[in-house]
Design a protein around this nucleic acid. Structure first.
Length: 586
RNA sequence: GCGCCUGUAGCUCAGUUGGAUAGAGUGUCAGUUUCCGAAGCUGAAGGUCACAGGUUCGAUUCCUGUCAGGCGCGCCA
């Protein structure tokens, strides 16, 4: 509909330029927007004001010309010039009620578009280290990432969702060490548990599992393990040096094969927990990409070699540095440490290069806001390797600050004091949690009150939307109980009977859905869809309270049933994109 | 100190990429059910859009500065 009006306006402008009634060198893009106020019609166009300067005429004059040049058509019933020079379009009744027929015909396809057709886009999200269960902070990224993916899919993109598994690197070594130490404890050894180790109870569970599987095969005396280990922080030492030394000791005492055994049992236990957690939360993935596979297949090495050949690497203090300052970063970055170990950055360079090589038109990384300082160096590396960095899009999700009532809740994976995503789901349910997360724009700090989210109160807007859907279902159940029947064909032939203001409002609201979907997708802004659904639900509830749908006049009744069926369809479509269920009763 | 994000109703947040009289939920107050689900609906009150300049037909939106909050600034990930 919107596109149709834009085309009409463009035609009118073209005609005016052709007749030299309007003298401009270049025509700007015609912008049409929904009006806030019904008095201003359905759509407003500001083209006259935009052109005023270039054409050397006053806006209202231009508007007059444009309106005069509009071709006859069936969709516009009235055009007005208002304010400083707005052109206000009023849709014809036939055009505005057409949406009901469209929705009922297209069903779950209604609203989908093809703006992204033929383009491959990769979306990477969550990618939390498999060193512990997901917490509520990851939940926001999971909800956001999965909905952004669905939105892009809905507007035609070929979407590939991916989780980058950090199964290599120091943090994983620390996890493996923590598991082993807990295992030794379970075998009866007295262990001063390192302050920088992973202290969560799940580590003990994994250690227990290890003990059951392997017996005391991996048992070594604590005195042997802790000999020649530098002091931990509480004893006045350095906690990092302490844990690193313990890791080294674990590797030497256990040997590569047994160390890997400990490492893998931890990795697999936690990773499968994360997979289940995300699947139950409705965050689906097409691929789980292993960092270790990059390292072991030599891809990381190749990427670094490529940087060296591009002459953007240098050696200093025994380490290899990437000259990221040449590409806009604040300082140069270490890629290979003086001990020969590649940094996290090294595998990330390889991973991103790999993304490009897989031929995606757009690459979307969804990261927590605390990683924002990391963006310039990744872009720099891709730039240095002559990749098109405009294809790389990093979206930041701001932190959710947790509250319990009015009390702030601290979060740290290491200390083990955190609220897990699973706990949240158990208490609020998937639907409420997802909707709650996605209600705010991602770049907005979010106060997440656990008490509020956990309470099954009406404060949670998801119920409001779901209730609208259930209510329509209830109407059709009621119809059946009364022995009535819905005949869509007859209803669609009588839509002209829907003249109530609430009915007109719903026409407008329903026809906005495709626009909202596209806007939300292209702006990576799921909250626009969530807010739209609340607005649609509100308009429906208002209608419901003002009029009965099952009435004696058969034609009117059928027409109204068509309208509310269309409302139900659009709510279901929108909720499906958000990954929230649309219950038939609640 | 530098960089990124943010500042809108008592609280939590929207604001259609610069448009017309700045909106919703919640909370407060007042109404509403012989009638398809009251998890609903109707109305009232509530604002110096942090502050000061600038850009133009027009600024909550863009630019500059100030103030306030969050995050980042490792050979951690």
């Amino acid at each position: 509909m919107k596109q149709q009006l834009i085309r009409l306006t463009e035609q009118a402008l073209g005609k005016l330029v052709g007749l030299q009634k309007l003298t401009v060198t270049e025509l700007p893009e015609v912008q049409l927007e929904r009006t806030k106020d019904k008095k201003h019609g359905d759509f407003a166009c500001n083209i006259a004001m935009v052109l005023a300067k270039a054409a050397g005429m006053n806006p209202r004059q231009i508007a007059e010309l444009v309106v005069g040049a509009l071709e006859d058509n069936a969709v516009i019933s009235k055009v007005e010039i208002a304010g400083p020079g707005f052109i206000n379009f009023f849709l014809s009744e036939a055009a505005s009620r057409q949406v009901v027929i469209d929705v009922l015909q297209q069903q779950d396809q209604y609203g989908l578009s093809k703006v992204g057709a033929g383009k491959k886009v990769q979306v990477e999200f969550v990618s939390a280290n498999p060193t512990g269960p997901l917490h509520v902070g990851h939940g926001r990224g999971a909800a956001y990432g999965s909905v952004v993916s669905s939105l892009l899919k809905a507007v035609g993109f070929d979407v590939h969702r991916e989780y980058y598994v950090n199964d290599a690197g120091r943090q994983m070594d620390i996890l493996a060490t923590s598991v082993w130490l807990r295992y030794l404890e379970a075998c009866g050894e007295q262990i001063p548990f390192p302050s920088n180790g992973y202290r969560g109870g799940y580590v003990q569970d994994i250690a227990e599992m290890l003990l059951q599987q392997q017996g005391d095969k991996l048992l070594h005396a604590a005195s042997k393990v802790f000999s020649d280990i530098p002091a931990d922080e509480p004893q006045g030492g350095d906690k990092e040096a302490h844990i690193d030394a313990l890791t080294e000791k674990a590797k030497t005492i256990l040997g590569e094969k047994h160390y890997r055994l400990v490492f893998d049992i931890g990795l697999n236990a936690i990773l499968s927990d994360i997979r289940d957690d995300l699947a139950e939360f409705g965050a689906e993935y097409d691929q789980w990409f292993s960092e270790r596979s990059l390292v072991e297949s030599g891809v990381v090495e190749t990427a670094i070699e490529q940087l060296k050949q591009a002459n953007v690497m240098y050696q200093q203090d025994g380490a290899w540095w990437f000259k990221s300052t040449d590409f806009g970063d604040e300082k140069d970055r270490v890629v290979i440490r003086d001990n020969g170990q590649p940094t996290y950055f090294a595998s990330d360079i390889a991973y991103h290069l790999n993304k490009y090589q897989r031929g995606f038109d757009r690459i979307i990384d969804i990261w927590g806001a605390d990683h924002h300082g990391y963006i310039p160096r990744v872009r720099a590396a891709m730039d240095a390797m002559q990749q098109d960095i405009s294809q790389l899009n990093v979206l930041l999700v701001q932190f959710a600050v947790l509250y319990r009532g009015s009390e702030k809740v601290g979060m740290s994976t290491r200390s083990g004091e955190f609220v897990t995503l699973r706990e949240l789901r158990d208490e609020v349910g998937k639907d409420a949690a997802r909707f709650f997360y996605v209600l705010r724009s991602a770049d907005q700090h979010m106060d997440f009150d656990l008490e509020l989210a956990k309470s099954q109160s009406n404060d949670n807007p998801v119920y409001y939307v779901q209730y609208a859907h259930a209510r329509v279902c209830s109407v059709f159940r009621q119809l059946q109980e009364r022995g009535g029947e819905w005949t869509p064909e007859s209803g669609q032939q009588n839509l002209q009977l829907l003249t109530q203001p609430q009915e007109q409002d719903l026409f407008t609201m329903l026809s906005r859905y495709p626009e909202v979907l596209e806007l939300a997708a292209l702006n990576h802004a799921p909250h626009l869809l969530a807010h739209y659904l609340m607005d649609l639900a509100r308009d429906f509830h208002t209608y419901y309270n003002a009029h009965h749908f099952i009435v004696d006049e058969a034609e009117l009744s059928q027409a109204r049933l068509c309208l509310v069926a269309a409302v139900r369809q659009v709510i279901a479509n929108g909720l499906a994109v958000l990954g929230v269920s649309a219950p038939e009763s609640m």
